[in-house]
Design a protein around this nucleic acid. Structure first.
Lengths: 199, 199
DNA sequence: CGCTAGGCTGCAACGTGTTTCAGTCTCTGG
DNA sequence: CCAGAGACTGAAACACGTTGCAGCCTAGCG
């Protein structure tokens, strides 16, 4: 049962693009208000003025839906970050700054962050395409943030992935109340140090 | 070496201890056969010869149940690791070795691993106690593996947490088919390098 | 040895993610 | 402009985690 969503097939009409946007927006709104559990498919459908079956045609599961919201938000974050470039030169410093910014953004909307991260980490093989897209986007964002030239970044990909893992893991862990803010920030700094080491 | 078993309520009778063991065992068996989705509460109850309500008295949710299984398995792993001590001296090498062993174990039973990790990362505040217990146990295991003296380990706690985050994250990511074995192992090695740096 | 409190059982019921389907609407090719 | 293909709707139904409850059983106490 192969899925044919907009990822592979571009959306045809403007109305479909609007539907998709309405769905993403009301999902984010519901998540922002009540977290993962508050994103209920019937409610998403209703508040985006779409039938339940249609919602499932656009996003084959709640996980797909929330991962798509994450992807959407990441694109916005990436754009925002590009608008305000950093002044630091040291790659590790730049990464720490960037992730601090991102963390602040999530602290402002912890329920939305929790919903998206839970979905990302809960995603199984059926969401592989979307998860890989998010992973790629995040990696690109981190490389951008580090300010490293492409070839240098290539040599440090493993370090960047470790930073990404640490980022996701600490964020979720903090959002779920399993660790403290201080721990999360210390760990992110520790991980970012990796990018300045010999490859 | 905190031997924290289930909630503050110590088990009273032998039959209760047996019931708990039967539940943990059949959960592990179901998970091993079919992963997270195959662990269905009705089925766990039936195959451990316990009423559904009783299952819920012992473990208030599927997530609690699977995190308890993880805790159980970690205790076994910890014991196994102590039996066969490492010969390496370098802390990073020792950690890499240990995590390689652990990874191999999970490769032998990927569905069980997937079920446990999904549960751990999906756990919310209501599972805090159990998640913190697992976290502590894992940290203790890593410190043990590193061979560092206690005070030295204390100074590197953040590095050890980063290793733990990377471990969980790469493992789940590999189990979910989002990354390759090579990436996972490279990242674990990269993270383990942190423990040899200046504090 | 009987009594009581609390644990256990079987079962029904509820909520929410997901599937299915018949009927209706919209878009596109001819 | 029309017909067919595909998309959308509304509603019902299913699956599984979770809860609630009435009655039975066990353990420990008097």
């Amino acid at each position: 049962m192969t899925t044919q969503h907009q990822d592979a097939a571009p959306v045809r009409t403007a109305r479909q693009r609007e539907r998709r946007r309405r769905i993403l927006d009301s999902t984010a709104q519901l998540a922002s208000a009540g977290g993962f559990d508050a994103v209920q498919m019937r409610e998403v459908a209703e508040s985006s003025q779409v039938a339940l079956g249609t919602l499932y045609r656009y996003f084959p599961s709640k996980i797909h839906l929330l991962v798509a919201v994450l992807h959407d938000q990441l694109e916005q974050l990436h754009a925002t970050l590009r608008e305000r470039p950093l002044e630091e030169h040291d790659p590790a410093d730049r990464l720490v700054r960037t992730l601090r910014r991102a963390f602040r953004a999530h602290r402002r909307d912890p329920r939305l962050a929790e919903a998206m991260m839970r979905a990302l980490l809960f995603a199984d093989r059926s969401v592989q395409r979307e998860v890989v897209a998010v992973t790629r986007l995040t990696t690109a964002l981190l490389i951008d943030a580090s300010g490293l030239p492409a070839e240098e970044a290539d040599r440090r990909l493993s370090a960047i992935r470790v930073i990404r893992h640490t980022w996701h893991s600490t964020l979720l862990s903090w959002l779920s109340g399993h660790s403290t803010l201080a721990e999360a920030q210390a760990d992110i700094e520790t991980a970012c140090g990796l990018v300045s080491r010999a490859p």
